[in-house]
């Protein structure tokens, strides 16, 4: 990830900052130029609450470049409470304990490091909910 792209998308990655469509009112994540629901342009920024549940999941044993030091890890489709479905790694959980419908919450973690001289890429992952 180059520096400009990292910077442009960091709010989205660090804190689930997405949008609400001004035309149809639907929540949007990640942010887009056109609403995926009504195809109109014009959205307001919103921060999602970070709570959701596992919609589906799979374990990655053969990772793409940059992620191999974290294998094996679980990637899941997360259904946010506000509606959007997004893809994210799960963390702080053992793979046998993951199940569809498992309540999860967003945390900001390291996604990867771009070598010893490169940037550390931070972003959202999800883990089992810790009760207050």
């Amino acid at each position: 990830m180059n520096v400009a792209r990292y910077w442009r998308t960091e709010k989205t990655r660090y804190g689930l900052v997405g949008e609400t469509c001004r035309i149809c009112g639907e929540p949007i994540f990640p942010p887009r130029d056109l609403c995926p629901h009504c195809t109109e342009a014009g959205q307001d920024v919103r921060t999602f609450g970070g709570k959701g549940e596992v919609y589906s999941f799979s374990t990655v044993n053969d990772a793409p470049a940059g992620y191999s030091e974290y294998t094996p890890y679980t990637v899941a489709l997360i259904k946010l409470q506000e509606g959007p479905l997004l893809t994210a790694q799960l963390t702080d959980v053992d793979e046998p304990d993951v199940h569809i419908g498992m309540p999860v919450e967003m945390v900001t973690r390291k996604l990867k490091e771009e070598g010893e001289n490169g940037m550390i890429v931070y972003g959202y992952k999800f883990r089992p909910v810790i009760q207050a």
């Binding site: 974290y70 790694q89 945390v107 900001t108 973690r109 390291k110 996604l111 550390i120 931070y122 992952k125």
Partner: peptide, 9 residues
């Protein structure tokens, strides 16, 4: 700390 944790996280 886990593999994806550091002082910032």
């Amino acid at each position: 700390p886990g593999l994806d944790e550091d002082t910032a996280t």
